[in-house]
């Protein structure tokens, strides 16, 4: 199991705060919407990741446990 950041693209309105709080894992596309890294959250960034999730004005971010090689939102 590994821990990842997941964005709900429907809720997200492109505030971009997550990219400021967590530039290591989040970059913004040219319209200001977050492109979230697929990589597991490194232990050193755990606190920042939790903060980014808690501070999202649209509550569009979540922490997600993933089994090895399981892509986000895959079929069962």
């Amino acid at each position: 199991m590994s821990r990842h950041i997941r964005v709900d693209p429907i809720l997200c309105d492109g505030f971009g705060q997550c990219a400021e709080l967590l530039p290591e894992l989040v970059e913004l596309d040219e319209w200001g919407y977050p492109i979230v890294s697929d990589a597991p959250i490194p232990a050193s960034l755990g606190a920042e990741a939790r903060r980014a999730v808690a501070m999202c004005p649209r509550l569009a971010l979540a922490l997600e446990e993933r089994r090895a090689r399981e892509p986000a939102g895959a079929a069962p």
């Binding site: 693209p9 997200c12 596309d29 040219e30 319209w31 200001g32 919407y33």
Partner: peptide, 9 residues
């Protein structure tokens, strides 16, 4: 039109 990258992209 729900997801920013889809709508603009």
């Amino acid at each position: 039109g729900q997801c920013g990258s889809c709508f603009f992209g």
